[in-house]
Design a binder for these strands. Structure first.
Length: 545
DNA sequence: AAGGAGAGCAACCGCACGGCT
DNA sequence: TAGCCGTGCGGTTGCTCTCCT
């Protein structure tokens, strides 16, 4: 550090206090720019100087601060410091749920207009909001979750359009999967299939530069071209909208992400995410599923059957009622009139559950390459990820049903496959996570074989489940919309019993990560998780017992 | 217990834009 | 009209902290 003309700053330096260390991070080490101005963390002395100056002269004309106060900082830096840290009535600390909610609303309304948003969030700065938003975006991207809750409608215009082909939902009306499905209320849902290059594939690793895309981090108002490569495109506008109609169940919009998140993001370690693991048995030490959040309710809607062992169960719908939980139904329509594989097109019109747990009905044509991908997966039996994908594809095909999760699972399987380069060992590790889990699944195999009174159909269904357990990420609670953590409470496992199985044990088959720092888990979330898990457990119990 | 990886954060830079002179 | 200034924003950097192995 060099001289600075004997300014007040020089005096401050004599008693330089530790840089502001208000909780992690920092702007880097202290450096001096080519213009002799200091950079880096501000000291308390600098803060004092700046505060005194502003108190005396008021805000504005920041370039004069350096001249008049002796602060060896550029005006811009002074303004930033004042605005972000020294200004009175600044609210520090984590955002409250109300503030988070407000940010969502404001962002939906204004886009990346941080200052504008900050003006409506007393005590919060634009930088703070920006950091929060970017963190949220990254987090939810990692979790493969949409950004906006249902009741927050994005009202700002979209300046850029997606250029990456994707399934773009057009219209949807959905239903709470935790609500009984009423007669004749089949929701409708449409996908707009954008053109896709035959060589393009969702979720492929970025081996080549991705096409220009709308970044979730970019401002919808922004007019300059964005070529962000860090994130796959997510269009929060073109999303699924679902509605929870129950008074006890908040209404929300599920902004279903376009097929996004290649393996790198999805498979990165994420401390907040929910992890879904195979059924837990004794000696299972850890939960190493590398897959991240998706919605468990989808699983319940799948027709998890081996394509060669389709059970002759037609149109069965079961109602699962827990004494402590609201009843709900999982539509389980087994339609064995499905056309033979392969099919050139998906004609999807039946109900299925959304990634948010809502029931969708789809009228869609998938991109041709996606269909071919599916077919390819079906033909690849050795690769577990492909098996899982093929299983799901077959199930979807057979039932004319296909959910967003199904798509995503297939695509994640693609991604895995692409990442593993067809390496079975990697795939094995990836799906099963570890030899421990494989052992667990093997044990589960034996258990099912010994307990199943039916023929091999159920066993193959079980195998499909097992594969899914290894590959399907966990659910997201609806109430996680306003919680970035995506964490859920484990409270669902308490005090619940079932006729045939200890439901606590069953619930433990669907472990939900609970991290102490997030105490915002509402009772609703717990109920929801509980309801879901109970439902899933029932499904499994019914299928395999 | 130690090291690595990742998350979160403060601060910075470059650019763009608008108001004022 | 041009230049200055303040402001807003996207993106980046580098630090600390936390978690995982």
């Amino acid at each position: 550090m060099t001289t600075n003309n004997g300014s007040i700053w020089e005096l401050h330096r004599e008693g330089m206090l530790p840089p502001d260390s208000s909780g992690g991070g920092g702007g880097g080490h202290v450096v001096e720019g080519s213009d002799g101005l200091k950079k880096g963390p501000w000291t308390a002395a600098e803060d004092q100087t700046l505060m005194q100056y502003v108190r005396k002269h008021g805000e504005g004309n920041w370039n004069a601060v350096q001249r008049n106060s002796g602060l060896n900082r550029c005006g811009k830096s002074c303004r930033l410091r004042w605005a972000n840290h020294l200004r009175p009535n600044l609210k520090k600390g984590v955002f409250s749920p109300e503030e988070e909610r407000r940010i969502l609303e404001l962002h939906a309304k204004y886009g990346n207009k941080w200052a504008r948003m900050a003006s409506q969030l007393p005590g919060r700065t634009d930088n703070e909001i920006k950091n929060y938003w970017n963190t949220r975006v990254k987090r939810r991207q990692r979790q493969c979750l949409p950004l906006y809750p249902h009741d927050i409608k994005q009202s700002h215009s979209q300046a850029t359009s997606l250029t990456i082909p994707s399934l773009t939902p057009l219209t949807t009306t959905t239903q709470n999967p935790f609500q009984p499905i009423t007669n004749g209320s089949t929701p409708t849902f449409s996908f707009q299939t954008q053109t896709q290059s035959p060589t393009q594939s969702h979720h492929l690793p970025p081996l080549s530069p991705p096409p220009p895309s709308l970044s979730p981090l970019s401002s919808p108002h922004q007019t300059k071209p964005t070529t962000l490569t860090s994130f796959p495109p997510f269009d929060p506008i073109n999303t699924i909208t679902s509605s929870f109609s129950s008074s006890s169940t908040p209404s929300f919009t599920f902004h279903r992400p376009a097929p996004i998140l290649g393996a790198p993001l999805c498979h990165k370690r994420y401390r907040d995410s929910i992890v879904f693991s195979p059924p837990r048995f004794p000696n299972l030490k850890r939960n190493t599923s590398m897959f991240r959040t998706r919605s468990m309710p989808d699983i319940a809607s799948f027709q998890l059957t081996d394509s060669n062992s389709m059970p002759a169960i037609a149109s069965l719908t079961r109602t699962y009622s827990m004494s402590d939980n609201p009843s709900f139904e999982f539509p389980m329509t087994f339609d064995h009139s499905f056309p033979p594989l392969p099919r050139s097109q998906f004609d999807l019109s039946d109900n299925f559950l959304s990634p948010a747990g809502s029931v969708y009905s789809v009228q869609s044509e998938l991109p041709s390459n996606q269909v071919s991908q599916t077919q390819l997966q079906i033909s690849i039996g050795n690769n577990l990820s492909s098996v899982a994908g093929a299983t799901l594809a077959a199930a979807a095909d057979e039932t004319h049903s296909r959910s967003g999760l199904l798509d995503d699972l297939l695509q994640e399987a693609d991604a895995l496959e692409a990442y593993g380069g067809g390496n079975n060992s990697r795939t094995t590790n990836g799906i099963l996570g570890s030899s421990e889990e494989k052992h667990v699944l093997d044990g589960y195999d034996q258990w099912l074989q010994s307990t199943s009174s039916v023929d091999g159909h159920l066993y193959s269904m079980h195998k499909d489940f097992s594969k899914l357990f290894g590959s399907i990420p966990s659910s997201e609670s609806v109430s996680d919309w306003y919680s970035d953590s995506g964490e859920v409470s484990n409270a669902h496992s308490s005090g619940i019993t079932d006729v045939s199985l200890d439901m606590q044990q069953m619930a433990s088959m669907f472990p939900a990560d609970a991290t102490a720092e997030h105490g915002r888990a509402s009772s609703f979330r717990e109920e929801e998780q509980l309801s879901y898990h109970m439902g899933m457990n029932k499904v499994i119990m019914t299928q395999y017992s």
